[in-house]
Amino acid sequence: MTPVFEAIDLNKSFGGVAALQAASISVEHHRIHALIGPNGAGKTTFFNCVSGHQQPESGKVLMNGVDVTGAPPYRMAELGMARTFQNVELFPAMNVLDNVLVGDHLEISEGPVAAMLRLPRHRRSERRARSRALAALERTGTAQLAHRLAGELPYGSQRLVEIARALVGGPSVLLLDEPAAGLTAGEADILRELLVAIAAEGSAVLLVEHDMRTVMALAEEITVLDAGRVIAVGPPGQIQANPVVIAAYLGVGAEESGEVAGS
């Protein structure tokens, strides 16, 4: 089975400091894949390089086996990639529903003239987009916030709305940067169920996450990044037992492996 999304040997440095060194990852349909690593390991840089927000200096990014290295973010979106941001990038001056509708931008194909004249076909696609957006909000448990201003929401709700925005276009690859950060226990439960459901429907989910409980419970595959290098890949059980990973997390010579084992 060809992976839906692949990054091969990405290199990126900032002012001479290597942020990524030959970092690779391969993500398949129906799978939840986690990217973990200590602070400063290069996880967010990795995300930015595969979503087109930053350009890798070398290496390849493949979507469905096609080379899309260096494609800008909107191109990656057209190819079925959606993402969230570590610091939540909602549009604060728009209401929640409109925020999510932006995520559906590509599904409305009518041109500006059709929009200006409010042609029937444009009304129909707006109506369909609206019900998709409400459904996405429903799935993230934020439907009751649809008409609130996004900038006014508590942090956790903002995260869930951002996930709804990424979800609404039906992406084949969903990149989530620390989706559980700042969520209440209840919200985190919704998130976990949601991610399992999304994967079950066929999308590939790639998440960066610090909360080890979430990672170990959800991920079927884990890639561990340290100082820009991939130091381990494998299912959660193997990763928890991997001495290299434990050393990376706790510093060489440390004995407590409990941190990584997560509890």
Binding site: Y74, L101, L117
Partner: peptide
Amino acid sequence: NLVTSHFGRAMLAVSGSEAAAESSGAR
């Protein structure tokens, strides 16, 4: 009509966060 359509939402999105607008497919 234009600003209440997907174009209007993309316009507001661009003024809010270009990075997020772009990864939503709005150029």
